[in-house]
Simulated scan of single mutants.
Amino acid sequence: MGVLSHLDSMKHDMSAAEKKIYAYICKNVEKIPSMTAHDIAVASGSSAPTVVRFSKKMGFNTLTEFKISLSAETKQEAEITGYSDVYPSESFEVLKTKLSNNAQFTICETTELFTEAPFAEACDLLDIHEHCFVHGVGASRLAVEDFAHKWTRLGKKVVRETDYNLLLPQLVSNPKKSLLLLISNSGKTPELVALAETAKELNIPVIAITQFGQNRLSKLADVHLQTSRPMETELRSAATNSILAQFVTIDLLYYFDISRNPDYAEIVYRTRVAVDRFRDTYM
């Protein structure tokens, strides 16, 4: 994902000292690659260790890696450079362009966060557990429905309950065979945190899909699949960019699971044939 947009998405989690470093970087992007940790610290009014910790907190292994990524970004010219908010009385064409750009930016930022290891771990858990309980509230319920549609097609027993009081007893009754998948953009949704805490007490593995960074849900999860932190427009009436990030995460998990299991590909083919036969006969 874009380095500067990534830093911007993390600014609410920054300490006062880290915000000074962030502000200096934003104003001096072209200088940073040639500066040392000491140079950045003096210029931003912080300390060299804080600068190094800042780069690691932002997701980079070293300060050098951060500077290389930032340098590459400043040299790259791209048509889509970030999110655009929408405003009252804008034309249809302007809105269409902004929303298209925002969607593309969200997908690119999210997929650039993906690494194979957590997806492989999630697939392993999905393959070995008989029941997969999945839950999300608000707009994340759409992602829950998408997940359920995909894995039930593979023959998986997926249970999606919208009522916490109905889901909890089923977890308690099937702890050894169960897996819990929770979807929350913020990772702070009370109902999902409570479910994850209960699952941990019962030794039920938890897969969480949340935005990048540490949150209550990610800390409880056995596997954390991270999405970007897409900005939402001030005038939104529902989640738009965040749900796209969740959808692309589920899509990759689904196709990766199929790629690892040849039997799944055969199952998908048979279901496709069955649907086509129904349409040819009755529609």
Rank of each mutant, 00 (worst) to 15 (best):
H12F: 09
N215P: 03
L253M: 11
E145K: 05
N61Q: 11
T240F: 08
M58I: 11
M10V: 02
F247I: 13
E197F: 00
V268A: 08
K75H: 15
V137H: 01
A239M: 06
P205D: 05
A265C: 03
Y24K: 00
K156A: 12
Q76L: 15
S47P: 04
I32T: 03
E145G: 04
T62V: 08
T240D: 10
A199P: 14
G155H: 01
E109N: 15
A117S: 13
E201A: 10
E121A: 15
P262E: 13
R260T: 07
E121V: 04
T64R: 11
A274V: 02
V94P: 01
A48W: 00
I21W: 00
E73V: 11
A208R: 06
E201W: 00
R160E: 09
V193D: 02
A23P: 04
A239Q: 09
E145T: 04
K56Y: 03
L180Y: 13
N203F: 08
I209T: 04
R53P: 04
C123I: 09
T106L: 06
V86G: 05
E234H: 12
L253K: 07
T97E: 08
D127P: 00
R141A: 03
S44Q: 00
V206G: 12
V51M: 02
S15E: 11
I32Y: 01
S140M: 02
H224S: 14
L182N: 10
R272P: 06
S34H: 07
I183L: 12
S186K: 09
S218T: 11
D8S: 13
H131S: 15
H38G: 03
V52R: 13
K67T: 15
L63W: 08
E121D: 14
S173E: 10
K96R: 07
T227D: 06
S9M: 10
A103D: 12
V206K: 11
T152Q: 08
E18P: 02
R216F: 01
T152W: 02
E30N: 09
S71P: 09
S242H: 06
A199T: 13
V52E: 08
A139W: 04
T281R: 09
C26R: 09
E30K: 04
L168A: 06
N174D: 10
D276C: 08
L70A: 09
E130N: 05
D146C: 03
K57I: 02
L180T: 11
K98T: 15
R272G: 14
N261H: 14
D146V: 02
A23W: 00
T62I: 12
E197C: 00
N102Y: 05
E112H: 12
E130T: 06
I183P: 04
N28P: 05
H131A: 13
V29C: 03
A37N: 05
S228Q: 04
C132L: 05
E93S: 09
F60M: 09
P190A: 14
S55V: 02
L181Y: 10
Y255K: 06
D8T: 11
R153C: 05
S242Q: 06
N101W: 03
S15W: 04
S71R: 14
R260W: 01
H131R: 09
M35A: 05
E234P: 07
D39C: 00
D163A: 12
A274P: 01
A221K: 07
Y24A: 01
N185L: 06
A48K: 10
R272Y: 10
